[in-house]
Simulated scan of single mutants.
Amino acid sequence: MTLSAADVTVRIDDNALVDAAAFEAPAGAVTALLGPNGAGKSTLLRVVAGVLRPASGTVHFDGADLLAMRRRDRARRVALVEQEATTELPLTGRAVVELGRTPHEALLGGHDPSSDEIVTQALTDAGALPFADRELPSLSGGERQRVLLARALAQQPQLLLLDEPMNHLDIAAQLDVLGLLARLASDGVTVLTAMHDLALAASHADYVVVLAGGRVIASGSTAATLTPDLVHDVYGVRAAWTTNPLTEKPLLAIG
């Protein structure tokens, strides 16, 4: 199921945070949303998620208009893991993840017996099961990030959106999450994730969408799009493709 956005513009006063952005995130793939700080990555993700209404533009997923969709119907298809989500409510990790089942519960009440198993599996897949009985305010940033990822997984989304999911995670945890995203994509989930680490994105994303100044300036398969010239123009650094001696996969060296 392909995600397609066209002519998306978001303005605050006279400033265009996102300007006529158009891109596609192919079905069953991990697409990385890249760009320097302030490029508009988080804003564009929030538009796709239906959290932020654009001044203009369309967003379709599997042919359906996400912006016109009722909130509950959209939540059955789309899940968003935000970069920062703080709360002082004394909810346990499991209680937070259970919130991800809300779109699937009957409107007039009644507990779905399968939800308990889905929640436990989501906690396990996100590496958050050890935090299930701890209250969210007591968790570290990385632990909390795993719980929020588990909540999104509990929604059983067809489209998973993530805003800098590697924030607060150590290197091993980052690789765990990237491996999980690859498995979800292979199972048919369309994944769109904003990423700060260009080298990680180059190694683990199937496709990339590159933003600068609120505009999409390039998109396509990762190796073909992230050319040394483009990286230099956007980030002001040198780059070269080589081979990772440990994995034998393509590696974008930054210098």
Rank of each mutant, 00 (worst) to 15 (best):
T2S: 15
T9I: 09
T9M: 03
R11S: 11
I12N: 12
D13H: 14
D19N: 08
A20T: 04
A20Y: 01
E24W: 01
T31Y: 05
A32K: 13
A32N: 14
L34Y: 07
G35D: 03
G35T: 09
G38N: 12
R53G: 00
G57Y: 01
V59Y: 02
V59T: 09
H60R: 10
A64M: 03
L66F: 00
L67N: 05
L67V: 03
D73K: 14
A75L: 14
R76T: 08
T86P: 01
L89T: 01
P90N: 02
L91D: 07
A95K: 10
E98I: 05
L107D: 06
L107V: 10
D112R: 15
P113Y: 05
I118G: 09
I118Y: 03
V119S: 08
V119W: 07
A122P: 06
L123E: 00
A126Y: 10
A128E: 05
P130I: 04
A132M: 01
S140M: 10
E143G: 01
R144I: 03
A154E: 11
L160P: 04
E164M: 14
P165L: 13
P165N: 13
I171H: 15
A173C: 04
L181A: 05
L184M: 08
S186C: 01
G188E: 00
V191K: 09
L192Q: 14
T193A: 15
T193L: 12
A194E: 12
L198W: 12
A201M: 10
S203Y: 02
Y207K: 02
V208C: 02
V209H: 08
L211C: 13
R215P: 07
S219W: 09
L226N: 02
T227P: 03
L230R: 11
Y235K: 11
G236P: 03
W241G: 00
P245R: 05
P245S: 08
P245A: 09
E248Y: 14
K249F: 00
A253F: 06
